[in-house]
Design a binder for these strands. Structure first.
Length: 575
RNA sequence: CGGGGUGUAGCGCAGCCUGGUAGCGCGUCAGCCUUGGGCGCUGAAGGUCGCGGGUUCAAAUCCCGCCGCCCCGACCA
């Protein structure tokens, strides 16, 4: 393919809309363009990379025994009402009407549709297990689309759904998908980390997320430095190694003036004591009932854990008026002693003595708080986020490290939530009606593409792994006006294309510097420089994007040398 | 939705405070020159200054309202 016949609009400067490297490079290398917030066009090069990624996903899903289907993006709203998820996902779903005024939604995910299919088509245990998947566009009215393809309103997802007769079957299906995911990401040249995860709106029990470790990632996670434990911050348990008994522990609690000190940092500084000694008291409203949540001063409340512990459907921080009514003091001076609402305390506060908390009076805090002596705690639970340095909850020996990651895949065990609600059932060998157990497995395909770039780039541009590169080789004639240069370039391009390689010939009549810069920006794995100087020495130059290694070959040897080079890249990617 | 920022040519920006009829770099087009890391020269095209209203003799500039985009938070592949 000739560059001048392609659409490759590279940008010299960084578009102001892009913050992180991968988003900038997607735009600068001419892979995508934005239509509106969270909506993107894939230009030819972006589309080529995406197709290669989709093909890897397809091959690995097929290999794992899943069957490809294609479901509608548009769904009748009633289907979602049957599982109760129309209410749960109401805000993220795009809702439309047809000309008959029927209510339709654009699918944010497909549990309902696939289970409806299974309810009709699967009647017997002989048809199980079955795993159906598709690669298809999803629609989600995200609160805040951001970082280009990382969080878009419309994005391509691979979603798979397994149906099994029993728990052992579910485990097999889950493990098969887990293994397939590891292969997929490995083939993409991605280093991922599987972490324990919260199952959120999906419901269900176990789940793991596949994270691409990257500072630009939206998710926080922790991993143990001694064992294999890793978990999303949403659910990670950390074992506090800090002290729980502080100075003056035997003294009775007393109120001390703390003029205008509201935040943990201000109060800790005022008492010249570490923030961990403070008991942070937050007033929440769960299902319209106010309650207090206590966590150590150096930690944040984890609302996902809190909501689960309370089994609440709605949960939000109380507004200032409610705080004032409940505590009798302005926000910033709430404390647990004598509070007239139920008090839930973080596990890490057990045994806290000699602590400092709000006094429920303006401009005052309480010192020498002994949690067991002075506070009526309704229940202890894990309600706070794990912190770097916490002890590992698995092995006990290691310490947790904090990381950031991009969630590219997620696998769930769902149980019978959907199959029951939608009437999926089958007859077992004994003729008894049974409900199949489900699992679901997602990969954010477009997000994965961006994650690859986030993990594989340098100051000059993208560094494509061979498996996803839009083209494997760029042939770069330094001066297209020079006859022998162009003849060599064209002959080489033709020979490589003949051999089945994807080749881009930069036939633009541009200065060498422009073409070199663009070549680095595009990041194709292998570049062949053809110019008067090297031709005079009887060679062309072969340069590898990832290592910068430069070799030469005689023009007539070049096709064979390049094929060997490509094969070597595939080999090292597989290893 | 709350908080912060921003909107001027395809891209990156200046001009705004202190109103006077829009400018720079890159890119684009034509020509010359040059050809191993965004080269040089000449000429040209391209802008309802986000939208609406107001103040004023006069608004990119001041005031009000709205919208888009970006960042932080809840949501998630």
């Amino acid at each position: 393919m000739r560059w001048t016949q392609q659409l490759i609009p590279t940008l010299r400067e960084v578009p102001q809309e892009a913050e992180i490297a991968s988003h900038q490079l997607l735009l600068r290398a001419g892979l995508i363009r934005k239509l509106a917030g969270g909506l993107f066009t894939f230009l030819p090069l972006g589309r080529r990379a995406l197709r290669k990624l989709e093909q890897i996903v397809r091959e690995e899903m097929d290999r794992a025994g899943a069957l490809e289907i294609l479901m509608p993006a548009m769904h009748p709203q009633e289907l979602w009402e049957q599982t109760g998820r129309f209410q749960v996902l109401r805000d993220v779903m795009f809702k439309i009407k047809d000309r008959q005024d029927r209510n339709l939604v654009l699918g944010p995910t497909h549990e309902e549709v696939v289970t409806d299919l299974i309810a009709h088509e699967v009647q017997s245990y002989r048809q199980l297990p079955i795993n159906l998947y598709q690669i298809q566009t999803k629609f989600r009215d995200e609160i805040r689309p951001r970082f280009g393809l990382m969080r878009a309103k419309e994005f391509i997802m691979k979603d798979a759904y397994s149906f099994d007769a029993d728990g052992a079957g579910v485990e097999r299906s889950y493990q098969a998908m887990y293994a397939a995911y590891e292969r997929i990401f490995q083939r993409c040249g991605l280093r991922t980390k599987a972490v324990e995860a919260d199952s959120g709106a999906m419901g269900g029990s176990a789940s793991h997320e596949f994270m691409v470790l990257a500072d630009a990632g939206e998710d926080g996670l922790v991993e143990c430095d001694a064992c294999a434990y890793a978990a999303n911050l949403d659910r990670a348990e950390g074992v506090s190694r800090g002290p729980r008994v502080f100075v003056d522990a035997e003294q009775l609690t007393a109120v001390a003036p703390t003029p205008s000190r509201r935040t943990v940092a201000e109060v800790a500084a005022f008492f010249q004591t570490p923030p961990a000694r403070l008991i942070k008291t937050l007033i929440y409203v769960a299902d319209a009932q106010p309650l207090a949540v206590l966590v150590p001063g150096n930690r944040d409340v984890n609302e996902i854990k809190l909501q689960r512990a309370l089994q609440a459907t709605t949960l939000a921080l109380a507004d200032d008026a409610t705080v004032a009514r409940v505590t009798g003091a302005p926000a910033g001076f709430a404390g647990p002693v004598g509070l007239p609402v139920p008090i839930f305390a973080d596990e890490k506060l057990r045994g806290y003595r000699g602590a400092i908390a709000g006094a429920n009076q303006p401009d005052a805090h309480r010192v020498n708080v002994d949690l067991e002596r002075d506070v009526r705690v309704a229940a202890f639970a894990d309600l706070s986020n794990a912190l770097e340095g916490d002890g590992c909850p698995r092995c006990g020996a290691g310490a947790l490290q904090a990381r950031r990651g991009i969630e590219v895949g997620h696998v769930f065990k769902l149980g019978t939530k959907y199959s029951e609600a939608l009437g999926a059932g089958y007859l077992d060998a004994a003729g008894q009606r049974q409900t199949p157990l489900m699992g679901c497995y997602g990969i954010g395909v477009t997000r994965t593409l961006q994650a690859v770039i986030e993990q594989s780039h340098d100051a000059n541009g993208i560094v494509w792994p061979i498996a996803l590169a839009p083209y494997a080789v760029e042939v770069l004639p330094i001066n297209v006006q020079h006859g022998p240069t162009m003849q060599t370039a064209q002959a080489l391009t033709a020979a490589l294309e003949q051999a089945g390689l994807d080749v881009l010939l930069d036939d633009r009549d541009e200065r060498p510097g422009v073409k070199f810069k663009d070549a680095d920006l595009l990041g194709l794995p292998i570049r062949v420089n053809i110019g008067e100087k090297s031709l005079a020495k009887g060679v062309v130059e072969i340069k590898l994007r990832h290592s910068g290694v430069l070799t030469t070959a005689a023009p007539e040897q070049a096709p064979a040398a390049l094929q060997a080079c490509v094969q070597e890249l595939w080999r090292s990617a597989a290893g």
